[in-house]
Structure formats: structure tokens, C-alpha cells
Amino acid sequence: MTPSRTSGAGGSRPLPGAWSVGLHRGAIELRQFFRQRDQLVFTFAFPVVLLALFASVFGDEVKGTGVTAAQLYVAAMIAAGVMSTSFQSLGVSIAVERDEKVLRRLRGTPMPPTAYFLGKLWLVLVTGVLETVLLLLVGATLFDLDLPTTADRWLTFGWVFVLGLTGCALLGIAISSVPRSGRSATSVVVLPFLVLQFISGVYISVDTLPDWMLDVGALFPLKWMCQGFRGVFLPGSAAVLERTGGWEYGRIALVLGAWCAGGLLLCLLTFRWRSRRDS
């Protein structure tokens, strides 16, 4: 049965659904995010600063590819920016909200639990899009990154972005249950994210990484997002840098799709509304 509540005229009307409440939660999450200026500046400026540093230091053309190292970094940093605004952001913020008993209070309201996660996903989607647009502007204007001119490349960009963002967001929700307190959340979440950036081709070109590192990195979505975005923004000649000499779009879709399904399962199995100290 649909739950109802008494209106002011003495009748009844159905409670708002999870989708409409989720939109409202998303608006609240966005307002809170944009009001925290230090977090706002750090979130959007950090990948841009790293991009500028690495691209300036390693700006020479990569032999046999027709692209510069700076262009490789732009594509990889877009993937890292997507994971930062999803995996890292949710992993830390949800752990803090759990520790401060925000989740417990929300769980005690009539709000559908799904609406809370929809609100977080709206936050991740908006910030992820803004982060990506900013990095594309910097890459195109400062480092000669060629933006796609065909619909099929933009379509590829779209599904890599959506699948990558969704998988990383679900993984961030799942890892939020690992920290024992809000204070330790940053350390617990940032460390694996930092390691993944090194073994997934963000800071170091994949053709220079040891095979065992590539094998470990291939288990996680960041490596495949990096590869997918390189395929979108770089010419086909740059594919020689990849381990198999190709972009492997089919495998990218398979791995990212598997992380969406696996991340959802992890969330269902591990998510807690109360901190361990309240259990």
C-alpha cells in the first residue's frame, strides 16, 4: 500500500516518491557543497594544478605517437577527476555523516532510503560534469588537446563517463563503511585512490609500468576510464602505448559495467546507517 498523510483540508495524499525526494536531497547536497568554498576550490583546482605541473614537466612529444605527454596527461586527469568527485568524495563525506549521526537521524525520518543515495548521485553527477568541462577547457586551450569532432567519439565519451562515474560512486559508497570514524575517513579513502592513480596510467604512462602493476590496475575502473578517454581524445597512433596496442572499447564497457553491478552488490552488503560505536 502507498503510505499517506493527512492534508490540511482533512483529506489525504500520497507521500512524495523516492525520485522527487531524491531530487530535493540533491539540491540540498549541491547547496551545501557550493557553500563550502575551501572544499569547492580544492575539488576543482587540485586536478587542474596537477595537470599543469605534470604537463609542464613532461611536455615533449612521445615518439611514434604524434601526441605530447601533456595530451596524455589531460585524458588521464579527466578520469582521475571523475573518480575524485565520485569515489573519494562519497567515501569521505558519507563516513563523516555516519560518524556525526546524520545518517541515523535521516533513517528515522519518512524519507525513502533510496532518496538519500539519489541525492548523493546528483551531487556526484553535477560536480563530475563541471570537473570534466574545466579539465577539457584547460587541456584544449593550454595543451592543444583535440576535442572530438564526430558524434561516435562523443558517444564513446558519454558511456565511458557514465559507467565510470556510476561504478566509482558505488565503490565510494561501499568504502565509506570501512573507516571506524569520520576522522580516519580521509586517510582510508585517499590512500587506495592515490595508489590507483600511479598504477592506472594517470601519473605514469602505461607503457613504462611493470606488468604486475598493470595487472593490479586492470582490476579497477580507473585504468579503464583512462584508456577510454585516451581513445576519445587522442589519435589512433597513440594506441601503440597501450598494453595490447588498441583501445579495447568492448573490454572497457565490460569492466566498467561489471563494477557498476559489483559496486551495487557491495553497497547492499556493507552499507550501515549507524557507526560501529553505535552498534
Rank of each mutant, 00 (worst) to 15 (best):
L125Y: 08
A75C: 04
I78F: 03
G250R: 06
R104S: 15
V133Q: 07
L209H: 04
Q39D: 10
F271K: 01
V240G: 10
M111P: 00
R98Y: 03
F233P: 00
S181K: 02
R107C: 05
V202M: 05
S93F: 00
L23A: 13
V126M: 12
T166W: 06
A253N: 02
T109G: 07
A174S: 11
A79I: 06
G245S: 10
P110F: 10
V162K: 03
T65E: 05
Y203M: 13
L264E: 08
P221W: 04
S181Y: 03
E242R: 08
P47C: 08
C226S: 08
G59P: 03
M213H: 05
D99S: 13
A238R: 01
P3G: 12
G257V: 10
V255S: 03
G22Q: 05
M225R: 00
R35M: 12
A52K: 05
H24V: 13
F229V: 02
L171R: 01
G182C: 11
T270W: 12
F271M: 08
R180S: 11
T68S: 15
E97G: 02
A115H: 04
G167K: 02
S187G: 15
E100Q: 15
W273Y: 10
L51V: 05
V216L: 13
D146C: 04
P47R: 02
R35P: 04
V255P: 00
G91C: 07
D152F: 04
L171W: 09
S4Y: 13
A45L: 13
F87C: 07
G172P: 02
W212A: 10
G108E: 03
L222T: 01
L136I: 12
C226E: 03
I94N: 03
T68M: 07
A140M: 08
G262R: 05
T141M: 11
V255E: 02
T43I: 05
R13E: 15
G91W: 00
S12L: 11
L135Y: 02
L50I: 13
F33D: 10
V206Y: 00
Q88E: 08
C267K: 14
F58K: 09
V49A: 09
F198N: 08
D38K: 11
F44D: 03
A9H: 14
D146K: 12
F58L: 13
V48S: 10
A80N: 15
I173T: 12
L171V: 02
W122A: 13
L163F: 10
D38C: 09
A27M: 14
G26D: 08
E242M: 12
G17C: 13
Q227M: 09
R35Q: 12
S237H: 12
P148W: 06
T2L: 14
R104C: 09
F44T: 02
M1V: 15
L118H: 06
L194A: 14
Q32W: 10
G8L: 15
L90Q: 07
V126F: 04
V21I: 15
M77P: 00
Y73I: 07
L256K: 02
S237L: 11
S12R: 15
M111W: 01
L209T: 06
P192K: 12
T114V: 14
R5Q: 14
I252K: 00
S205A: 15
A95R: 00
R272Q: 12
F198T: 09
L145R: 00
S89K: 11
V188M: 04
S205T: 15
M225D: 01
A151S: 14
